[in-house]
Simulated assay, not measured.
Amino acid sequence: MTESIDVQVCYALPDRQELVSLSLPQDCTVQQAIDASGLLQKYPGIDLDGANKVGVFGKLVSPGSALRAGDRVEIYRPLVADPKEVRRRRAAEGKALKKGAPDLPRAEQE
């Protein structure tokens, strides 16, 4: 008889999170856990070969990585914006405001 382990597979959407608890064979992989979770059928937009990455407890792993008891497999959505580019743009806007920002009129006091 094969030993089993308990794992979770989660996929976060902008408005909710799907969390599936599973009991799988001890030698299962990340890909096998995702397949068993049913999330690929429920959300056909998940593309593990392209846009979506996977991880275990916040650390990126490959779909062929082995799982241990208690692991939480996470399916990540693609980024909408590159965080580094957003910071650069904000910094550039801040510099522009400091250099040439016109004086704003004060509200008249009553």
Rank of each mutant, 00 (worst) to 15 (best):
D49Y: 13
A36W: 01
A69V: 08
R68A: 12
P105F: 05
Y11V: 02
C28G: 05
L60C: 06
V7T: 08
D15I: 05
A91H: 11
L19K: 09
G45F: 13
P14E: 07
Y11K: 02
V56M: 06
K84Q: 09
E85V: 15
S37P: 01
S62P: 02
D47N: 15
A66W: 07
L39S: 02
G50N: 13
P105L: 07
V86H: 01
G58M: 01
L67G: 02
D103Q: 13
T2V: 12
K59Q: 15
V73E: 00
A51D: 12
T29D: 02
D71Y: 03
G100N: 15
V7G: 02
R72P: 05
A66I: 10
E74G: 04
D82C: 14
P44H: 04
L13P: 00
Q32G: 09
P102S: 14
G38C: 03
S4G: 06
Q109V: 14
V20N: 07
A51K: 14
Q32C: 06
G58Q: 03
Q41H: 07
I75P: 02
N52V: 03
Q32T: 11
L104P: 01
I75S: 00
R89E: 15
V73C: 02
R88P: 11
D6W: 05
S37W: 00
P102M: 15
R16P: 03
A92I: 09
I5N: 00
V30L: 04
Y43K: 06
P78Y: 06
E74S: 05
A81S: 10
S37M: 04
V56R: 01
G100Y: 13
Q109N: 09
V20Q: 11
V9T: 00
G64L: 09
S21H: 10
G45E: 15
C10S: 08
V61Q: 03
S62C: 04
K53S: 03
Q8F: 08
D27Q: 13
C10D: 05
Q41M: 04
D82K: 11
K98L: 15
A81F: 14
R88I: 13
L24G: 00
E74W: 05
Q8Y: 07
A12W: 06
A66G: 13
Y43I: 05
M1A: 12
P25W: 04
D47Q: 13
S62T: 13
R88F: 13
P78S: 07
Q41A: 11
Q32A: 12
Q41P: 01
F57A: 14
M1E: 09
P63V: 12
A36S: 11
D6A: 12
A81E: 15
T29R: 11
V54E: 00
K99W: 07
A12P: 03
V56H: 04
R72A: 11
G64H: 12
K42D: 08
L67V: 03
R68M: 12
R68Q: 14
Y43R: 03
A92V: 08
A66Q: 11
P25D: 09
L19P: 03
L22Q: 05
D35E: 13
D6H: 10
T2M: 12
P105D: 06
G64R: 12
L40A: 06
V61S: 02
A33L: 02
Y11N: 01
R72C: 14
I75C: 00
P105G: 03
A69L: 01
G55D: 08
A96K: 15
V86D: 00
D71W: 00
L97F: 06
I34N: 01
A92C: 04
R87G: 04
A51L: 15
